[in-house]
């Protein structure tokens, strides 16, 4: 029965062709969906990108009328000592930084002596980058409190407050000093009054703290403590190292 065989073969060929066509259609459909998915994903990422950049720009912009503490220089610097001093020492510190405490313990008295001599004018640049939820953003609260002290009672009181905070530095990873303790040290340093307590508790200079931290970054400072003697980075942070660098700068 040759006719029967031919018909069967034709049916088979037809079925095979149909299956191939279906597979091709399915593949084309899959490809179309992949391309569509890719385009949708790319657009979604692009939209998210723009949205996040806008939101973060807004979050980092400090308001134009942000409070700047009185008795500061160039917006973010707290200057201690005579303007006629021949040598300028720039100090970048974070109140929560243990190495800053080590530096202050070793060389803080030397700085004070050189300032008292009239040899050095100390420029303090505060940084606040060690905020954690555990310490209740202590870096920011401490630098804000320092700003309150200098604004209220001047650079002398700031120096006393600065020394008190480093002498009583809370352990890193701990809970930080409380606002009440900061108010107490501020009073001890010579900045008293209800406005001092209010400004410490309400982070009145919070935006200024951000600006100061950002300025340190713009100054190229990425580690604390960083000390410059007449603009030259001090490598040896010991008391002797500081003294010899200042002596050399004063002679030069």
């Amino acid at each position: 029965m040759p006719a029967e065989t031919t018909r069967a073969a034709n049916r088979e060929r037809l079925a095979a062709r149909r299956a191939a066509e279906a597979a091709a259609r399915a593949q084309a459909e899959r490809r179309r969906r992949t391309v569509l998915g890719g385009v949708v994903a790319a657009v979604a990422v692009l939209v998210a990108l723009v949205a996040v950049i806008v939101v973060q720009t807004h979050r980092t912009s400090t308001s134009a009328n942000a409070a700047v503490p009185a008795n500061t220089v160039d917006g973010t610097v707290i200057s201690v000592g005579s303007a006629d001093a021949p040598v300028t020492v720039d100090l970048y510190e974070d109140f929560q930084c243990p190495n800053c405490k080590a530096f202050e313990d070793a060389s803080g008295r030397t700085v004070a002596q050189l300032v008292a001599d009239g040899t050095v004018q100390a420029h303090y640049h505060g940084m606040a980058f060690l905020d954690t939820s555990a310490n209740g953003r202590y870096s920011t609260r401490a630098l804000n409190a320092a700003a309150v002290v200098v604004a209220t009672a001047g650079p002398g009181a700031f120096q006393a407050f600065h020394d008190l905070l480093f002498a009583n530095q809370p352990v890193e990873g701990g809970s930080g000093l409380t606002d009440a303790q900061l108010v107490q040290y501020a009073t001890q340093a010579g900045a008293a009054g209800s406005s001092v307590e209010h400004d410490i508790r309400n982070l009145t200079y919070g935006d200024w703290v951000k600006t100061a931290t950002d300025q340190a970054s713009k100054d190229g400072v990425t580690a604390t403590p960083t000390v410059f003697v007449d603009g030259h980075k001090l490598a040896d942070l010991s008391s002797a190292g500081l003294t010899s660098a200042v002596t050399a700068a004063a002679a030069g």
Partner: peptide, 18 residues
Amino acid sequence: GLRIDCGCFGNGGEVTAG
């Protein structure tokens, strides 16, 4: 010879311990 943290997982690139 920069003294920075890579900032790979957040933070501001500062190194505290040097």
